[in-house]
């Protein structure tokens, strides 16, 4: 496939939602009919398989494919409910040293021949794991939360992506709490985009359902869940596919019923 897209999902800081975004985006893209593979480049602390509920199905990894002890389709783990989605773990947590940037390029080259989307789940940090993952990526999604530390790390990562010629780079803002933003207790969307100067691909609201789904191993986007985060992930997938969907305005995201809205209205009038 010549029009296959290789997208790196990275953040710099850990725990901001790289793996969750990868899993949900993978499911959403596959659900929209695109042949998608998610590659777990964070193999030291891999847990993309956990989020997708595929932990017990992994037999081989990219490591065996490169060593030619198995075929690529043996190592690919097909998702139970979403046949368009496959998972490829990059390596074995016990063998951390083997992977080099060239290996990553080889693997991604093989994957891009048979998939429309190759999503790479990047490890936190900017050390070797990040460099390996960047070597194979053509475009990137930087995910961050509205906190100064996450934004700072994202900024650093964007600089590194630019010097490595990765383009376009888009931004996803995760764990947005509209109420705190309205009260100016949290960085506003504008503050973040002001510093990072990237096109915003999506806003994901803070959502307890994400925790539930992570522990169950069923990504939110799997069953057309109605929670705000599920909707946001679905929209991000559509925007990636080129659809024009307006961004949600956190100030207007009516949380629950009329009471909350009235309270919000009063708050905005006071300020």
């Amino acid at each position: 496939m010549t029009n296959s897209r290789t997208i790196l999902i990275c953040s710099g800081k850990g725990g901001v939602g790289k793996t969750t975004l990868t899993a949900n985006l993978g499911i959403a893209l596959a659900g929209q009919g695109a042949r998608t593979v998610v590659l777990d480049a964070d193999f030291g602390l891999r847990n993309l398989d956990l989020l997708l509920g595929l932990e017990n199905r992994i037999v081989f990894t990219a490591q065996e494919v490169l060593a030619e002890t198995c075929r690529l389709d043996q190592a690919l783990v097909k998702h139970k409910q979403e046949p368009n989605l496959a998972l490829l773990p990059a390596g074995n947590p016990r063998m951390l040293e083997w992977l080099k940037p060239e290996d990553m390029q080889t693997i991604v080259g093989m994957l891009s021949e048979r998939f429309d989307y190759v999503l790479i789940d990047c490890p936190a940090g900017i050390e070797d794991g990040f460099k390996n993952a960047v070597a194979a990526a053509k475009e990137a999604i930087v995910i961050t939360t509205p906190e100064v530390s996450a934004v700072r790390d994202a900024d650093r990562v964007i600089g590194l992506l630019n010097t490595n010629g990765v383009s376009p780079v888009q931004l996803v803002l995760n764990r947005v709490r509209p109420k705190m933003m309205a009260n100016q207790e949290m960085l506003a969307v504008d503050d973040v985009t002001d510093i990072l100067a990237l096109p915003l691909l999506g806003l994901v609201l803070e959502d307890e359902q994400v925790i539930v789904s992570t522990n169950r191993g069923e990504p939110l986007t799997l069953n057309g869940h109605a929670s705000p985060a599920a909707k946001a992930y679905g929209n991000i997938a559509r925007r990636l596919q080129g659809e024009d969907i307006p961004l949600m305005d956190p100030a207007k995201s009516g949380r629950r019923g009329i009471r909350a809205r009235v309270r919000q209205l009063m708050q905005t009038k006071i300020f």
């Binding site: 700072r152 900024d155 650093r156 964007i158 600089g159 510093i195 100067a197």
Partner: peptide
């Protein structure tokens, strides 16, 4: 961006922002 550093002899003009870090 964060982590970037530029050091010059003479004067320095940056056409763009200097981000935190």
């Amino acid at each position: 961006r964060s982590g970037d550093h530029i050091e010059t002899r003479g004067h320095l003009l940056i056409v763009g922002d200097v981000n935190p870090g």
